[in-house]
Design a protein around this nucleic acid. Structure first.
Length: 161
DNA sequence: GCCAACGTTGGC
DNA sequence: GCCAACGTTGGC
């Protein structure tokens, strides 16, 4: 068997509205693992499908709540595969243009690793040196699946040590 | 609830 | 291929 090529661990941030699916929901899921469905943006789709790899680490971010912020850390445990909720007419994320034989939308599985307590609010993040270029903090940024650089990851983790 | 910013759609 | 109209996101 050819040996698997290991690449450096990458870092990401996933946004979710906690009224829809919260970090606690992930924490309470079987094996603390769930698929991350419902992403309907092409740039985010490309990241889910092509770039996120098993073992990558993920910040979970709660949006549209008070306060918004990073609430936990998770790990990618299954790489991109078709988002079946797009095939289901009863699902709120149903997309008739996505066919089983050529899916438009993809998802990954993530596993909750630990809570961040207290949460790191958006307001706090805006004040931290070294995060000025973070995608989350850019004006008008609304990507729900976004990259985090290694240095940004270290800076943010350092806030709760 | 408001609305700025952004992504997508579709007429031309 | 342009771009106006529309729908959505998400902080405030």
């Amino acid at each position: 068997m050819p040996e698997e090529k290991s690449q450096p661990r990458q870092y990401w941030l996933l946004k979710t509205e906690p009224t829809t699916f919260s970090f606690d929901d992930l924490w309470n899921a079987p094996k603390r693992t769930s698929f991350w469905d419902g992403v309907r943006n092409f740039q985010a789709r490309n990241t889910l499908r092509d770039r996120m790899k098993a073992g990558d680490l993920v910040f979970i971010y709660h949006s549209s709540t008070d306060p918004t912020g990073i609430v936990g850390v998770a790990e990618v445990v299954k790489e991109g595969y078709p988002d079946h909720t797009a095939f289901d007419p009863k699902d709120p994320h149903y997309d008739p243009k996505s066919r089983r034989e050529s899916p438009t939308w993809y998802m990954v599985d993530v596993k909750a690793l630990r809570r961040i307590d207290p949460i790191i609010t958006l307001e706090e993040l805006r004040q931290v040196k070294g995060l000025e270029k973070m995608v989350l903090l850019q004006r008008g940024s609304r990507l729900s699946v976004q990259p985090v650089t290694e240095s940004e990851w270290r800076v943010i983790e350092g806030l709760r040590r």
